Amino acid sequence: MDLVSLIGTILAFVVIILGTVLKGSTVGALWNPAAFVIVFMGTIAAVMVQNQGKVLKRAMSMAKMIYMPPKHQPHDLVSRVVGWSEISRRQGLLGLEPQIDAEADTFVRKGLQLLVDGSEPDAIRNAMEVELETREHIDLAATKVYENVGIYSPTMGIIGAVMGLMAVMQNLADPSKLGHGIAAAFVATIYGVGLANLIALPMSSRLKGLVGKETRMREILIEGLVSIAQGDNPRQIESKLQGYLS
C-alpha cells in the first residue's frame, strides 16, 4: 500500500470540504445530483467515445496501481540475471528450464524460454523488444484515459454551470430562488475542475511514471538475457547491467 498516494487522495477531499466550511458555506452545498450527472456521466460518455473497450478495461485495471504499485527492484533483477548466467555456465542453457516455471511474469517466462530454446542473441532481442514496445504502447494508451478525463471534466463542469444558470434565469421573478440556484450552478464547476486536477491528471502522471519504471526493468532483463545467450561472463553481465542502476 502506497500511503503517500492514499493520504494525498484523502487530503484532496479534505481540502475541498474544509475550504467550503471556512468560506461560510455548508458541506451539503457541495452535493448536487444534477451537477454530478452532467459532469461525471458526461465525462464518462466522452471518454467512452474516444477510447476502445480494451483500452478502458486496461485503464480500470491499472487504477489499483496508484495505491498498490508493483515493486520495482532492479537490484534484485540484476542478481537474478547474474544467477541465471552462472547456472548456464555450469549446466548449459537447458539448466535454466526449471527457472521458467518459477517465474510468474509472462514476459520473464518468454525470455527464459527463448534462451532455453537456443535462440540467437539478435532473435531474442528482437522478439523481446517487440513485446516490450507492444506492452508499453498498451499501458501508455491506458494512462491517457485518465488524461482524457482531466481534459473533458472541466468542460463538462462549465456546461453544467451554464445549464444551472439557465435554470436560474427562468426564475428571475422569484428572488428567493436566485442565491440557491447560482450556488448550485457553480457546484458543477467544482466537480469538473476538482475531478481533473485533484484526481484524474495526478493519476495519469503517476501511472506514466510506473509504466516507465516497468519498461526500464524489462530493458534490464532483455540486456541480461542477450548477454547470457552471447556467453558473457557473469561478472561482465553484472557490470553491464549495473549501468542501468546508476
Rank of each mutant, 00 (worst) to 15 (best):
S153F: 09
L241Y: 12
L207K: 00
V187L: 04
L178D: 04
G224R: 04
V193I: 15
V108D: 00
E136S: 12
S246H: 12
I222K: 08
I10F: 14
S79M: 10
G181P: 09
L96K: 12
G83P: 03
S88I: 08
Q73P: 00
Y146A: 11
V145K: 04
Q236C: 02
L115D: 05
G92Y: 09
F13P: 02
L210T: 11
G212E: 10
A183R: 03
I220S: 02
A59R: 06
D117M: 10
F36Y: 10
K110F: 05
L245E: 07
I138L: 07
I190V: 15
I44E: 00
Y146G: 06
D232P: 00
S239Q: 13
T134C: 05
M169N: 02
L210C: 12
E97S: 13
S204R: 06
D139Y: 08
S227L: 12
G179R: 10
S176A: 14
P202K: 08
G42N: 10
G83T: 05
A183H: 03
S88V: 11
P70H: 11
T9G: 14
A29M: 07
L112Y: 12
G83R: 10
M217K: 02
V145D: 09
V108E: 01
A35L: 00
V226F: 01
T189N: 07
R135C: 02
M128P: 01
L221M: 14
L178A: 06
A200D: 03
F40G: 01
P98R: 06
G111L: 01
P121E: 09
M62A: 07
L201G: 02
F107Q: 04
A29H: 10
S246P: 00
F36H: 04
I7H: 08
P154I: 06
G8Q: 06
K177H: 05
G53T: 11
V14T: 13
N148W: 11
S88D: 09
R58H: 09
L6I: 03
K110M: 15
S61D: 13
R90A: 14
E97T: 08
V4L: 12
L6F: 15
N32R: 07
S239R: 14
I220G: 12
L112K: 09
T9W: 05
D174P: 04
N233G: 10
V162F: 04
V15W: 13
E223H: 14
Y152P: 02
I87H: 11
E219K: 15
Y152F: 15
V39N: 02
W31F: 15
I199E: 01
R206A: 13
D232V: 02
T134H: 13
Q242D: 11
V39K: 01
N126R: 15
L96E: 06
N126I: 08
K208V: 08
